[in-house]
Simulated scan of single mutants.
Amino acid sequence: MAQSTENSYQKNYEKLQEIAQKLSQSDNIDIDELVPMVDEATRAYTLCQSRIEAVESALNKRLDKVDDDSED
């Protein structure tokens, strides 16, 4: 199942990096941009975390299946 570009791990991870870099390199953050940036970072983080959990689950199922097959 292919991920849409909007929900891809890579795109959302890059967005997190971009926001973090912007925040860390800026001495004066425009307060009107802060809440939208945090909202965008939160969405990106949630999608990345969800993707990581889905991959972990899929890998664990496959590894469990390999273990079960090797015990037979």
Rank of each mutant, 00 (worst) to 15 (best):
I29C: 03
S24A: 13
N28A: 14
K11H: 03
K15T: 14
K61R: 10
K15F: 05
S8P: 07
C48Q: 00
I31H: 06
L34S: 06
D39A: 02
R51P: 00
A44M: 02
E71L: 04
R51V: 02
K11E: 04
I29H: 05
R43M: 04
S8Y: 06
A54R: 09
L63Q: 14
L63S: 09
S4A: 10
S4M: 07
K22W: 14
R43Q: 08
T42V: 02
L63P: 04
T42L: 05
Y13M: 06
C48M: 03
V55M: 01
E33C: 00
I29F: 06
E71I: 01
L34F: 12
D69T: 10
N12T: 10
L63W: 14
K65R: 11
V35C: 00
E33H: 05
I31T: 05
I29N: 05
S24T: 13
A54E: 09
Q10W: 01
D30M: 07
D30K: 14
Y9P: 00
Q49Y: 02
E14V: 00
V38L: 13
I52F: 02
N7I: 01
L59E: 09
E18S: 04
E18Y: 03
I19P: 00
S26Q: 08
V55R: 09
S50F: 10
K65A: 14
D30I: 06
D67R: 02
S70H: 12
I52W: 05
A58F: 08
A58W: 10
L59Q: 14
R62E: 08
M1E: 11
L23E: 12
K61E: 13
N28C: 09
N60R: 08
E6V: 10
S26Y: 05
E53A: 05
E40Q: 13
D64P: 00
A20M: 11
S24V: 06
K11L: 07
A41P: 10
S4Q: 06
A44W: 01
L63F: 13
V55N: 02
S50V: 07
A54D: 06
K15C: 07
A41H: 03
D30P: 03
E56N: 12
T5M: 11
V55Q: 08
Q3C: 05
Y45E: 12
D39T: 00
E71T: 01
D39V: 01
D32E: 15
A44L: 03
K65W: 08
Y45Q: 14
Q10N: 09
P36H: 08
S24L: 09
V66R: 13
N7K: 12
Y45K: 13
D69E: 14
D69A: 12
V66K: 14
M1P: 06
E40G: 01
A20V: 11
E6C: 04
E56K: 11
L34I: 05
N28S: 15
N12Y: 13
E40T: 12
S57P: 01
